[in-house]
């Protein structure tokens, strides 16, 4: 049996070498075929090895600490705290830091697809939907942002200043969150520091960071951009209401609008 295994290993090595040669000599078709062979052979090897190995009792994954809420609820929970359209990565790190959850960004992407399907089949059946943010100019889904359907439309439309404005708002929300916690955890503090470090006069150093000061500094900069941003957003939201149906209002429209803009330039 071990001899068979060694034999297999030799064949696998040989195949691997062939794959690399095919890849460097610019023969993608051959490389693909060989790769498939290789995976098959590796599977055979794995099975053979498993047969040889004494069965190990699988203790199962250790009980996960953290949230028992469904992923959808967890995302909602984090977004309610953030209160602005946010990148999946931020949703995950906020939920992990503040609520001790175990979300993954991959899960989040599939979630959003489910939401759209659910809304299309029976609109408004749920109290809220996880939806897209829209770009102010073309009203298409803004890249990589998740929002909540119950928010005012102007909050879900993003203009050129919105990234900064929303960044400052999250900084403020996190600062307040830290203030509320009796003993803020290291992950929450590190998260806040990512904001504080990029806001003028928010904190001189990680160790000297005070949440109230962070919030004040963020509010000060926010006042510089807030009005202009709101004007953009409201104008675009108004336009969206007249141009889009309710599914598109939540999940954005697609190509059609792109073409229109493209041809009139």
């Amino acid at each position: 049996m071990t001899e068979a295994l060694e034999n297999l290993e030799r064949q696998i090595d040989e195949l691997r070498a062939q794959v690399r040669r095919a890849a460097t000599s610019g023969d993608p078709v051959r490389a693909r075929e060989l790769r498939a062979d290789l995976r098959r052979m590796e599977q055979v090897w794995e099975n053979a090895l498993a047969a040889l190995t004494a069965p190990v009792v699988d203790m199962g994954a250790p009980a996960q600490a953290g949230s028992i809420l469904p992923a959808r609820e967890q995302v909602h929970q984090a977004l309610v705290l953030l209160a602005v359209p946010s990148a999946p990565k931020l949703v995950v790190s906020v939920h992990t830091a503040v609520f001790g959850g175990d979300l993954s960004s991959v899960k989040l992407t599939s979630l959003k697809r489910d939401e759209e399907r659910s809304f299309r089949s029976s609109p408004h059946a749920r109290p809220y939907y996880l939806c897209n943010a829209l770009t102010y100019d073309r009203l298409v889904p803004a890249r990589g942002l998740v929002a909540v359907s119950t928010w005012p439309l102007a909050r879900r439309v993003v203009g050129p200043l919105s990234a900064r404005v929303d960044f400052l708002r999250v900084g403020i929300a996190l600062a307040h969150q830290v203030e509320r916690m009796s003993t803020p955890t290291a992950p929450v503090l590190r998260l806040l520091w990512q904001y504080a470090a990029n806001i003028p006069d928010a904190a001189p150093a990680f160790d000297a960071m005070q949440p109230a000061v962070v919030a004040t500094a963020a509010t000060a900069e926010l006042s510089v951009h807030e009005d202009a941003d709101l004007a953009h957003r409201e104008e675009a939201a108004e336009r969206a209401r007249t141009q889009l149906d309710e599914t598109h209002l939540l999940f954005g429209s697609s190509l059609k609008v792109v073409r229109r803009i493209a041809t009139d330039s």
Binding site: V140, R143, P160, L161, A163, E221, S254
Partner: peptide, 17 residues
């Protein structure tokens, strides 16, 4: 200066353009 923060993403929109 402080007000200069506007950000325009001109990336390809979902590979459609």
């Amino acid at each position: 200066s402080l007000p200069e923060v506007a950000y325009h993403a001109l990336d390809n929109v979902a590979g459609r353009e």
